[in-house]
Design a binder for these strands. Structure first.
Lengths: 210, 210
DNA sequence: TAGATTGTTAATCGATTAACAATC
DNA sequence: TAGATTGTTAATCGATTAACAATC
């Protein structure tokens, strides 16, 4: 386990590994990089190299000890503490994210949603929705660090600026636009429309090939 | 405009360009790659190279003609015809995708959702939800080609197999797992939990840096 | 031992960036 | 003309893969 710069791609593969290793039956003691690679459709050398970066090492002939590997990856990803977050833009996507319970496992605790539409009070599962005007005060009081932006494209930059003014350090951006932020703010873009377009184009290419 | 293999990364940047160019005021006649790059936080040479692949070319000193560029990118992405799709797994994420209206712009027309839970009848906006048992017949009758998979991890591979058996060619997979599919089926993975983890790790790295 | 595996070093590949010529 | 821009060719960079030595 070396401590150097970790490429983002690797960072995104780690949860996949973790998820896979955890999904193995309890009885599994050992798991080799080769097996994992085959199951996940990746190169075995890449898996081995990735694991070398985060784990305390495997055993020749046996592979990695399942339990240790889980502990190592979890330790590396350091997910124990939940980070509080808010969702800005309580449209369909925003409400879905508010209500989705799965993010807790990845260390995200979404406290509330914010929207321009003041008639919204809470999501169907009861998460509160406040007017955007209350954002700054709420974020400062609760020391919120992460904002999930799910507003329409046109409002995204302004919303982002507002969030940063409210003290946010990290933005998970679902608007299909590049946000300009100060150097110390981290942005992760999620562009579903672009993914979808890529899928359709691949489908079309496949078609032409046959 | 050359016709060769188009890397997926470029494919995912094109909608971003298109979106940006479309967002410019009507009065804008020309737009240079340099301007676009600055606005989008990308390298200008990359933008120019990307555009060279899909457009009929710009004019020295002026840049690209806005209208032509829109037409070229749209023409290249070829989004006119909507592809019909189904969502399998009508949990929160599934319902959000079912109800989200924005995918039409990217050429996706989601007809219906499917779920194991037979008590679900339709989403809050009225999209129908059918039992999974009806999937195959529905897909074949409507010539569905794209399945959006939003079931829990454990059920994802089985669901995917089912969809392929029903004649699907393309899978938009939201389950954090690698799906095994025949060679002629296209898969686009969307792993929100992994993105989120990457965001949190970057935030942490940022912290240590200051 | 023989076979399976790790982990490292070198090679390859692909994508991004730099440099620059062309030209309006 | 001078400046801004395109578009191409070469260089760089980073990530993946191949080859292989080590070893249990």
């Amino acid at each position: 386990m070396e401590s150097e710069r970790i490429p983002k791609k690797l960072l995104m593969r780690l949860p996949v590994y973790l998820n896979y290793v955890k999904s193995l039956p309890e009885s599994t003691q050992n798991i080799s990089a080769t097996q994992m690679a085959k199951a996940l459709g990746l190169g075995d050398v890449m898996v081995r190299k990735d694991l070398a970066k985060v784990s305390s090492g495997g055993r020749r002939k046996l592979g990695y000890i399942r339990e240790n590997l889980i502990a190592d990856i979890e330790g590396f990803l350091d997910v124990p503490v939940c980070t509080d977050a808010v969702v800005i833009g309580a449209g369909r996507m925003g409400q879905a994210l508010l209500d989705y319970e799965g993010f807790g496992k990845s260390g995200l605790n979404i406290l509330a949603g914010f929207d321009l539409n003041e008639t919204l009070q809470h999501t169907s599962s009861g998460k509160p929705i406040y007017p955007v005007a209350a954002l700054k005060e709420f974020c400062q009081r609760n020391h919120i660090r992460i904002a999930v932006i799910t507003v329409p494209v046109g409002a995204a930059q302004a919303t982002c600026d507002l969030a940063i003014e409210a003290g946010i350090d990290a933005v998970w951006n679902f608007a299909p636009i590049h946000l300009r932020v100060p150097g110390d703010v981290v942005v992760q873009n999620e562009n579903l429309a672009a993914s979808l377009t890529a899928l359709r184009m691949q489908l079309q290419a496949e078609e032409r090939r046959t």
